[in-house]
Design a binder for these strands. Structure first.
Length: 699
DNA sequence: GTAGACACTTAGTACGACGTAG
DNA sequence: CTACGTCGTACTAAGTGTCTAC
């Protein structure tokens, strides 16, 4: 069994561990500590540092963020205690039943060790339900850290306490008038608010989009009313408001750092209580506790709804989800109240409201990425992708066979699966007409895939976020031929896979491997690429060199997944500055060479650019300088190349969402690269569950 | 099998903090 | 100390995929 549990190396990589909330009393204190330490050790987690009772107070502090914070411990305890009743609720499941769900080997003992080990190996198999029984009649507070959660429709938590959401402040009118036909116009605060939203977008690209203006005008003119002076957006001059906005921004910038700090602290104080939730008695960070402020909808690409007013969300729009026995959060706006209160422990959201732009959709408040709940499902995601590794050979064989199937649907499924596997395409769900026109694999249009004889395909389409995917790839001949067939008799705007949609595709994939869906291929592809590249490319060298290896692998993955970013405004300026510097250095180099030449002949160096006499240097010194300069030039050229290569590549997305952190952590351990060189603070927190991985781990 | 409701992950961008070269 | 550039984070849009009801 691979039990790296509490190896010394894991300490090096230990992230700030969140600690279960302690209840109060002294005796609990010691029990908690004892049990915790054990569970920590056995599940490979870093044991609590000193683990003495006096540390307990610190357990109440949010370790991850180091934020001063801390909800009042008293308040906390009270709530946690209250919630205990909740926890007992789920005791109505007979023990026998629960035991049945557990693997037999696990049922005979309640040893944490077995449980912990199980978690790793079987969480995917959905065998191991959260069995809290072991803790039930004790005062132990379990660490939910690695408790396996379960499959769908299952319980996600037992107790949940939180304080709801915080609303943006009401609008403060500024009274600056816009000009209509050159004349200043009075607006009501509501009208002014929306006008200001538009005004401040003056220098964005949206201002060049007729759709944006059209949608804005539709919503704003409604607010203005039928008989308003303003009848034509084009006659409006928002410059005064825009300038006021710039001034405000400048004012803010000019504030002294003390003022800024004070402001920040004030904000923190107000938000503090919303930042945390207590899930199964563990304090967890909430992800987005701020309700989205009103604004103009900024859809990506050619979104039909861009520019529409996103109205203000009020408490009566919001449904709260919270533990049965937890106090219902007070509505922060006096005189108003929540839309609804739920106690649904099969979901993880703390609150939601309907998206004002598309009322059929929802905006959720979830826990932060650092929470156990998220970590748990993240881990399951990667375990599933690793499972695909075992099946992939057969899956490939199967679809290869079906490239020539007489059944068109089968052929389409085969080719689509091939593309998803080979190119890491997204599944491609159907989209509505009121969304940007983008596609994924199943929704590819004939015009998106061009056949280039003898066996190449050129892809060109807009994917998620309207990011363009262009790629020409050589494919197996049967695939090439099949695509040709799918083309025939269709126009460019017809569906390439007319017999296919994501649900059919996924239904098929599920037959090949339990839980397999299209997106798993992307995760698999990304992680296996990282793992293989790291293990092939890593050579002896210093940390910096190894980090470069990692970044190269990361970049490779980002390219596979088509993770792009826009070129920074200053990119070209930066590049020319670098070129300039290199030219300068080359000049220096040339001069040094001349001097060296002369020095070798015993002559003094030439005068410098200002006509001044330079110091007489020995050939040795000159040679050294030449070498240094050369190295400098080479480094700069390399840096420039990297910069150019990465100007449109976003490395972050794959790191956050696609690369199994255990690959990275294990590699870091093996090659003595401090994990902090690869993961920043938030990634360390998010991947806390991966930190204790065995150094031998391979994806 | 299909549409719609629902829940959750994945995505790029804006912007401020922060570090560092000059 | 300034200016520049990078980094980290918040924000929220845009995907994926499941389930249910017909």
């Amino acid at each position: 069994m691979k039990s790296s549990a509490g190896t010394s190396s894991s300490k090096l990589y230990g992230s700030d561990e969140k600690k279960p909330l302690a209840s109060n009393s002294e005796q609990k204190c010691s029990t908690v500590k004892g049990k915790l330490e054990k569970s920590s050790m056995l599940s490979g987690k870093r044991p609590l540092d000193k683990g003495n009772c006096s540390d307990q107070s610190s357990a109440k502090k949010p370790k991850i963020s180091d934020t001063p914070t801390a909800m009042k411990s008293k308040q906390l305890t009270v709530k946690a205690e209250k919630e205990k009743a909740d926890e007992d609720d789920d005791d109505d499941i007979p023990i026998s039943q629960r035991i049945k769900k557990s693997p037999p080997s696990n049922s005979k003992t309640s040893s944490m060790k077995q449980k912990a080990a199980k978690v790793v190996s079987s969480s995917l198999k959905k065998l191991n339900k959260k069995s809290k029984k072991e803790f039930k009649n004790s005062k132990y507070i379990k660490s939910t850290k690695v408790s396996p959660s379960s499959g769908d429709g299952q319980k996600k938590w037992s107790t949940l306490v939180h304080n709801g959401v915080i609303f943006p402040p009401p609008y403060k009118p500024h009274g600056i008038k816009l000009l209509y036909d050159g004349r200043p116009i009075d607006l009501t605060p509501e009208q002014e608010e929306v006008a200001t939203m538009f005004a401040v977008m003056k220098d964005t690209d949206y201002m060049n989009k007729p759709q944006f203006k059209k949608n804005f005008w539709e919503d704003w003119s409604k607010l203005l009313g039928k008989n308003h002076t303003i009848k034509d957006l084009d006659k409006c001059d928002f410059t005064p408001i825009y300038e006021w906005h710039l001034q405000e921004k400048e004012k803010k910038k000019q504030m002294s750092s003390e003022e800024k700090k004070a402001l920040k602290e004030e904000k923190l104080k107000q938000e503090e209580k919303y930042m945390w939730a207590i899930v199964d008695r563990v304090k967890e960070k909430v992800g987005n506790f701020r309700v989205e402020p009103p604004g103009l909808f900024r859809g990506r690409g050619e979104h039909p709804k861009m520019g529409k007013l996103k109205r203000r969300i009020r408490p009566s729009d919001i449904t709260i989800n919270i533990g049965k026995n937890a106090p219902i959060p007070e509505c922060p706006i006096p005189g108003e109240s929540w839309k609804d209160i739920k106690h649904d422990n099969t979901v993880t959201w703390l609150a939601f409201w309907n998206d004002p732009i598309n009322p059929k959709e929802f905006k959720y408040v979830f826990l932060a990425a650092s929470s156990s709940l998220k970590g748990q499902s993240d881990k399951e995601k990667y375990e599933k992708a690793r499972m695909l590794k075992e099946y992939i050979k057969n899956i490939r064989a199967a679809y290869t066979k079906d490239f020539t199937s007489k059944d068109v649907t089968k052929r389409q499924i085969a080719v689509a699966t091939y593309l998803i596997d080979k190119l890491a395409l997204r599944a491609g769900n159907e989209k509505d007409d009121d969304e940007a026109d983008t596609v994924g694999c199943c929704t590819l249009k004939v015009g998106n895939v061009e056949c280039i004889p003898p066996n190449k395909l050129k892809f060109d389409f807009l994917g998620k976020d309207s990011i363009q995917y262009v790629n020409t790839v050589e494919v197996e001949l049967p695939v090439y031929n099949a695509i040709g067939q799918f083309h025939t008799g269709k126009s460019k705007s017809d569906d390439l896979f007319d017999k296919l949609d994501t649900s059919k595709l996924n239904a098929h994939l599920k037959e090949l491997m339990p839980g397999l869906t299209a997106k798993v291929f992307r995760t698999y592809n990304a992680s296996i690429t990282l793992d293989e590249m790291l293990n092939k490319e890593t050579k002896d060298g210093d940390v910096a060199e190894k980090v470069v290896i990692y970044q190269r692998a990361n970049k490779e993955v980002a390219i596979i997944c088509n993770h792009q970013r826009s070129i920074s405004k200053s990119h070209s300026a930066q590049m020319s500055r670098l070129t300039e510097k290199i030219t300068e250095l080359k000049g220096v180099l040339k001069e040094l060479k001349i001097d060296l030449d002369r020095a070798n002949k015993g002559k003094p160096p030439l005068k410098d650019a200002d006509g001044k006499q330079k110091r007489n240097l020995t050939p040795e010194v000159l040679e050294k300088k030449i070498a240094q300069t050369n190295a400098k030039i080479e480094k700069m050229e390399r840096d420039m190349q990297t910069k150019e290569d990465l100007k449109t590549v976003a490395l972050g997305t794959s790191k956050i969402n696609y690369l199994d952190p255990r690959i990275t952590v294990a590699w870091c351990k093996r090659h003595e690269v401090p994990i902090e060189k690869i993961f920043n603070k938030s990634l360390l927190a998010k991947f806390a569950w991966a930190m204790d991985v065995d150094p031998d781990f391979r994806f």
